[in-house]
């Protein structure tokens, strides 16, 4: 993307989603921004994008008003406080964004593998599934008839 303003917006979104989904403490789960999810997320947001940009601007304004500097320079804890304040003022801001972010994050191959699955669509490979313990059914099998004869 060559438009400098658009680039700035994507960078700001990337910072924001790193706050929403940071890397896990054990390092197994990556931060959302580091997966490059900001650009596809922007596409997904479609008509909701202008509202998201307003929210990003609000984060910047609140961060600077607090005297701590740019939103991108805040610690996770400071950024969370800013986001909570912005979300309280504009409850619609995070709903659609978080929904789409979770969808994008949890289908990303790196995340899917980190969860212990193979990073591929279910079809055609499928999955093995053990039959299970049918002997558990003996009590029911040998129990009384359970339907009414009529």
């Amino acid at each position: 993307m060559s438009d400098p303003q658009a680039n700035d917006e994507i960078r700001a979104l990337s910072n924001l989603i790193d706050v929403l989904l940071p890397a896990s403490a054990d390092g197994l789960m990556p931060a959302a921004g580091s997966l490059g999810l900001a650009a596809p997320l922007r596409e997904k947001l479609g008509d909701a994008w202008p509202a998201t940009v307003s929210g990003l601007d609000a984060c910047e304004t609140v961060a600077r008003a607090g005297g701590a500097g740019a939103f991108a320079s805040l610690s996770q804890q400071e950024a969370t406080a800013v986001l909570e304040q912005v979300a309280a003022d504009d409850p619609a801001f995070l709903g659609g964004l978080v929904f789409n972010l979770y969808a994008a994050y949890y289908q990303h191959p790196v995340v899917v593998e980190a969860l212990g699955l193979e990073a591929r669509p279910p079809y055609p490979g499928g999955y093995p599934l053990e039959q299970g313990d049918l002997s558990q059914l003996e009590r029911v099998r040998n129990g009384p008839r359970r339907y009414r004869e009529c």
Partner: peptide, 23 residues
């Protein structure tokens, strides 16, 4: 699946965003 789990967590209010998300 992974996405449905996240949306279930979100919908039932048991999955915060932020530092506590992964746990």
């Amino acid at each position: 699946g992974p996405v449905s789990t996240a949306l279930f967590g979100m919908g039932t209010g048991r999955l915060p965003w932020g530092a506590d998300h992964h746990e």
